[in-house]
């Protein structure tokens, strides 16, 4: 009895998970097939929606790349022995970690000019780049805190052992402390990745052509209530398909690290 529940337990869970994963696409598919005119319209608009979604992926990847690089450096600087370095960084992190993403996207959109003049050449400064900056800023603040926390979670005896062998402070950080931090900060980093990816939808509010914006365009053009609904379900399904695997992977990694 116990044995059967034990084997069926995880299996059942697995089934529910895959069900969640296919549920939204299934709803879309069945609905589109039962009303073929709706299905045809949706198929027509899919490339447009997909081009919007590419923008979400692009913004998310770039924001996370910049955010991670800057955040990792800031996280290290948050622990610098010099106050002159530490205080401004801590201030940056505290301010931007507690600012709503939408506010930052609005701020970067309106603070930066729409074009930059470099040596007499007018270079466009598109809104999507501003959205990348608007999301990279909070991402860097979060990554800084993740990095700082990871460094501080490494026992001081590791520093002492490194020091005792003759490693400099920087070498100890580079070869002994940071490699151990990567493993510890991966799960929270992926959570952040997922949350920044979802926040890319906010860029629609400043006119960036991304998925949510594309869906709004489409529903305004088609002017059918059922199409509007299915278009937004497609938006949800797309974000789900991107973020759910990230959160699954995070949980698996967390379990593996806890076991080790």
């Amino acid at each position: 009895m116990t044995a059967t529940t034990m084997t069926s337990g995880p299996k059942k869970q697995h089934l529910t998970r895959s069900l969640a994963f296919v549920a939204l696409p299934l709803v879309i598919l069945i609905w589109a097939l039962t009303d073929l005119s709706l299905g045809r319209t949706l198929v027509e608009w899919i490339p447009y929606l997909a081009s919007g979604f590419m923008m979400n992926i692009l913004i998310s990847l770039l924001a996370m790349t910049f955010g991670t690089v800057i955040g990792a450096i800031f996280g290290i600087l948050e622990l610098a022995p010099y106050r002159l370095v530490r205080y401004p960084v801590v201030a940056y992190v505290q301010i931007f970690r507690n600012a709503p993403h939408l506010v930052l996207i609005f701020a970067t959109t309106y603070i930066f000019p729409f074009e930059i003049v470099i040596a007499g050449n007018y270079l466009p400064f598109p809104d999507w780049v501003k959205a990348v900056i608007g999301l990279a800023i909070p991402a860097s603040a979060y990554v800084a805190e993740i990095t700082r926390g990871a460094i501080q979670s490494i026992p001081t005896t590791q520093w002492e052992a490194a020091q005792g062998l003759g490693f400099s402070r920087w070498q100890a950080l580079r070869y002994i402390i940071l490699p151990q931090c990567v493993r510890r900060s991966l799960p929270p980093w992926m959570n952040l990745f997922s949350s920044i990816t979802m926040a890319t939808a906010l860029a629609s509010l400043v006119g960036v052509h991304e998925l949510l914006h594309a869906a709004t365009d489409a529903s305004t053009a088609v002017r059918r209530i059922d199409f509007t609904i299915i278009a937004y379900i497609v938006v949800m399904a797309a974000f789900f398909a991107l973020c759910y695997p990230i959160s699954r992977l995070t949980r698996r990694l967390e379990r593996r690290f806890n076991a080790a």
Binding site: T157, Q158, A161, G164, L165, G166, F167, Q180, R183
Partner: peptide, 24 residues
């Protein structure tokens, strides 16, 4: 100077109670 202490520590080995190996 830290650099001078490092020069010294290269020549003097130390083994700790808690081993302190690098786990990664």
């Amino acid at each position: 100077k830290e650099s001078e202490r490092i020069e010294l520590r290269k020549r003097v080995g130390i083994v700790f109670q808690q081993y302190n190996l690098f786990p990664h």
